[in-house]
Design a protein around this nucleic acid. Structure first.
Lengths: 242, 242
DNA sequence: GGCTGGAAATGAACGCGTTCAAATAATTCT
DNA sequence: AGAATTATTTGAACGCGTTCATTTCCAGCC
């Protein structure tokens, strides 16, 4: 079973040959995606460049989209330690948020163009590649957990209790929006997005601070109401008037 | 050239035969889309059902997506009189907004499912079918003009002058968001969306009314700032700090 | 009538993602 | 060891959207 388990050696590292092949196909594919874009890259091209038959490529990846899913997984794994560092490196909420997002933007930078081909299905929760799909749920939740941690570990921002449980999802959504904007940002060096990141985050922070004002209680409640309604909807039996 | 120009009749209406064929293909296509969905319907199937060859279908419509574009055009033409009626029928802002959106939801109702197949590219402004694309610009602008009119004709809502020029686009965006939500709303009868429409509109209206408070001036300015930054970006040379 | 040029119509062919029955290689069982 | 089972590999084939060289149609002109 282990092709690298030499008969004469005891301590060979058990890496399946198939996993090497799988990794090679993925590497080649991502390289081609980055260089020529998602659409332009064909499965036949990937197979040829990886030195396998077309059928073999499909043996390891059920579809072309699956290659992108594998990229997703790889990305979140690679970003995890950097996100940890970002969280412990900063102390204030705004700074934490900033560095957390910087990790993502830096990591996705080389893949920005082909990431677009992927996120253009983002509005469709039915599509596997959508950030809202069932297939990406584990990635999404793992990601949102970081925002939750970030909120808990920030002592400078106090969130109203009714808003607190929804904040991780909201921040994640905010981040997705920025990434989406970034992908289609045609300004040189995407400085448009950089500006938007800075200004919107500042606004977000002041909004969060404002959200505690007692005067805004009714408005806040209505907003939370709306969030609950919009996000879940698993058969809440909502009364006619709120 | 005019096949329905009978030799013995003078006043025959000059409808090109080709236009009849074109319309027939479109009718058949939309019918199939509605009944079986966009993906499931093939160009070969459309051609067969319309009684033309595959090549002919492509003679009239450059692509499968073009059929959807034609649907768009047809939709906005059909909705125009109803939107006029909606605007003049109501007097208050909230009511106008409500009826205006009701027109859309009613018209799109029978096409809800296949509209999804189309709007799932909505996040990609490069895609022709996206509501943000260059190809749909004329539809979008024509649509936004209705929101502009609605604001002007509503005497019960006064909008801060700095916010006013952006409001049509914002309202249009709000509407697009609701439609998108509606399309993927899996609750029975999409009552989830109905609730969301009601509550979010109420919140929107109170938000608009609040936006005039002098106390909120700095916040408002920052938001407008953000809107300007996000929407255009045609090379604004924005200073470092705002 | 025949001629002509553009509009309309055609079906074969291409490249694509994907599927699949079959062949081959590797591993496990006896 | 050999047999049985499982993992991997293969290329042909399918259905799709799309393209294109070619043919058919038809109104206007001689």
């Amino acid at each position: 079973m282990f092709s690298n388990t030499f008969k004469t050696m005891k301590a060979a590292i058990p890496i399946k040959k198939s996993e090497v092949t799988r990794a090679r196909i993925l590497d080649v594919a991502l390289d081609l995606f980055r260089r020529h874009g998602f659409e332009e890259t064909t499965m036949r091209g990937i197979a040829a460049a990886a030195g396998v038959s077309l059928g073999s490529a499909y043996y390891y990846f059920q579809s072309k989209e699956d290659l992108v899913m594998a990229f997703y997984e790889r990305a979140i794994d690679a970003m995890t330690p950097r996100m940890e560092a970002a969280l412990s490196g900063a102390s204030h909420f705004e700074e934490k948020m900033e560095t957390l997002m910087a990790v993502k933007f830096e990591y996705f930078q080389p893949n920005r163009t082909f990431l677009g081909a992927l996120l253009r299905h983002s509005a469709d929760p039915q599509n596997r590649l959508s950030p809202f799909s069932e297939a990406t749920r584990h990635i999404r939740e793992r990601d949102q957990a970081y925002f939750a941690r970030m909120i808990n570990e920030s002592r400078d921002v106090r969130v109203p209790t009714e808003l607190a449980p929804h904040l991780p999802k909201l921040l994640w959504l905010y981040q997705m929006g920025l990434i989406l904007y970034w992908i289609y940002d045609r300004s040189p060096g995407q400085r448009q997005t950089r500006m938007l990141r800075k200004k919107s985050l500042a606004l977000l922070v002041s909004g969060l601070k404002m959200s505690r004002f007692a005067l805004l209680k009714p408005l806040r409640s209505k907003i939370v109401d709306l969030i609950v309604l919009a996000e879940g909807g698993q058969g809440y039996d909502t009364p006619n008037e709120a």
